[in-house]
């Protein structure tokens, strides 16, 4: 990696200030950024670690929602929400490997918005609210395409609020090498309807499958999805599968998620 300065502020305010420097970069758990630096594919002037900020750590409940601090690692989410939101806990428990789960953070994952990451499906599928140092962004506005979000330069994801659904499940079909989602589908049933979010598949990153949402909102059963499909156009096509294959898997994983949600 190239040389950089390093700061580990103790508060959100100090982190925001530190990130004002040109080419400063926030560092969560570093599970994407550190390998990128090692490959010399990024050259930040300064890394600002967010892991020393107490107010960005931990899990709490407020107003029927689960609030997760932006610097909370996946393993802590897997443990912490197992009772209140088991589908989210399961998702967190199957991201990467133990090292990734104990270093990687929910805020880091959402800020990076890798098109094959798991957390974007949970956030979009739950209609979560992304809390930053300066505002709140609903998930539908937050995800804006592959590696692209509504975050401004220097803006930090300080927390995420998840409304708790009646039922939910996440089904991931793993890419054989990286074990990221080749296709992952998050299904969540709320009193006012069902949300279906798909990761891994689209060239536009995580997206909601509205036809499936409509069908499942009137009949929350795998059979409700019979005959429904997403178009292969716009799906990622690579070494691990064509767009048509990914489109097919979206329907398969969606049905399985509904079946698992019960």
């Amino acid at each position: 990696m190239y040389a950089f300065d390093f700061e580990k502020p103790g508060s959100i305010a100090d982190a925001v200030a530190a990130l004002k420097d040109e080419d400063a970069q926030a560092l969560g758990g570093g599970q994407t950024l550190i390998p990128t630096l090692k490959q010399r594919l990024a050259m930040p002037s300064k890394l600002v670690s967010l892991t020393g900020i107490a107010e960005m750590q931990g899990i709490s409940k407020a107003g029927g929602e689960i609030v997760i601090g932006g610097a909370t690692p996946h393993a802590a989410v897997a443990d912490g929400v197992a009772g209140d939101y088991p589908a989210l806990a399961e998702l967190a428990a199957h991201i990467g490997d133990p090292a990734v789960r104990n270093r990687g953070t929910i805020g880091g994952s959402l800020a990076n918005n890798d098109p094959a990451a798991c957390y974007p499906a949970a956030a979009l599928g739950s209609g979560a609210t992304i809390v930053t140092d300066r505002r709140e962004i609903v998930a539908d506005d937050y995800f804006q395409g592959m590696f692209t979000t509504a975050l401004d330069e220097g803006e930090i994801v300080t927390g995420v609020r998840f409304p708790v659904p009646e039922k939910a499940s996440y089904m991931k079909f793993e890419q054989p090498a990286s074990r990221f989602a080749l296709v992952g589908v998050f299904v969540a049933k709320y009193a006012d309807g069902v949300r279906v979010a798909v990761t891994g598949a689209s060239e536009e990153g995580v997206f909601r499958w509205s036809e499936a949402e409509a069908a499942l909102s009137s009949d929350f059963s795998p059979a409700a999805l019979d005959g429904l499909s997403v178009p292969a156009d716009g799906m990622i096509s690579d070494l691990h599968g064509s767009g048509a294959y990914r489109a097919h898997l979206v329907a398969v994983m969606a049905k399985r998620a509904v079946a698992a949600a019960g």
Binding site: P176, A177, S178, F180, L239, H240
Partner: peptide, 11 residues
Amino acid sequence: LLNGSYMDYAM
């Protein structure tokens, strides 16, 4: 080489 890392070369 399209799969020159463990992200794409499956061991």
